[in-house]
Design a protein around this nucleic acid. Sequence first.
DNA 1: GTGAAGCTATAGTCAGGTCAAGGATTAGAT
DNA 2: ATCTAATCCTTGACCTGACTATAGCTTCAC
Lengths: 171, 171
Amino acid sequence: MQTIGQLVKKSGLSRSTLLYYDKLKLLSPSGRSAANYRLYTPEDTQRLAQILLYREAGISLENIAVLLDAQDSQLSAILEQRLEALNLEMNEIRRQQQLLLQLLGTSSPLRSSKLMNKQQWIAILSASGMDEAAMRNWHIEFEKKLPLVHSDFLHSLGIDPEEMAAIKAYR
Amino acid sequence: MQTIGQLVKKSGLSRSTLLYYDKLKLLSPSGRSAANYRLYTPEDTQRLAQILLYREAGISLENIAVLLDAQDSQLSAILEQRLEALNLEMNEIRRQQQLLLQLLGTSSPLRSSKLMNKQQWIAILSASGMDEAAMRNWHIEFEKKLPLVHSDFLHSLGIDPEEMAAIKAYR
DNA sequence: GTGAAGCTATAGTCAGGTCAAGGATTAGAT
DNA sequence: ATCTAATCCTTGACCTGACTATAGCTTCAC
């Protein structure tokens, strides 16, 4: 049994945060002392550890509450939903990166250090000994094994949808 | 000269948004009618187009205001700063993805369709005709040409910092 | 008996808006 | 010329999510 202050120290969270979690019914202490102090049991502490883990993965407090009070089926549903959301975010970031590079123009030194484009990728593959046929094979394999990831990758090179369709049509 | 309603139609923004931009002094109409209606000139419209472009790149309204009223040096500084921020976001997303995959365990079908790991990448390279020496070369080339991107890529495969250091030490 | 730690309840923070109240003006139809 | 509907104005509150802060009170430990 720990008071809120002790849990603050152990968890690294602020007192306000723990109060907030209690208000959300995300983490309510199992007991109260005679003076109405919150008393957290070891199970509560363990629940908090779970909460923090899921929070690390960017899951909303609301969904964490659902996760923790529900079954496994809901669990993986929510985790997969979060993965899906991350995928969308990733695409949005790539889009913004491409746009920013365009806006910066060819002049900036950043262009060649932080992001890769199609030419650079091809140059790397060539330099490491791949010829055109091998690259074609590589696309085919990539598409066969992980089509979604392949799309993402091509997208990240700044390849537009048209060209992507052409690449994916390789046989 | 257009009234706010006309600009709403042309721009696709809501009236409230235009009012909000005016309040922020991000886009203030150059004139007012006798009845105190906002009157947007073609230059205002053009400024709005710029605003929307930068907004697409995820730049905050505050920074857009700075951009538009400042010189080129500030411009690229802000754009590069935004690129840097996107890089951080990207890393955070990757971290969350890896964590989620761990939480989902090996059981989920998603594991093999939305994200790539080291084994899968190696399998693709092998299947497209690369041998171990070629892969080594590929790392060396990648590291030489785009070290930052190389790191990001390895990271995205779920490769931990230790192994990454080993790979980057190839000569 | 005093100072730290606890309690509840309410309010504020951030970005990027959205919405509503209450009143003035304008355009189109009669 | 008049009525009505649409459009315009300003000011200020409200929204989401995850907290953080403050006020005013009680209780505990030394």
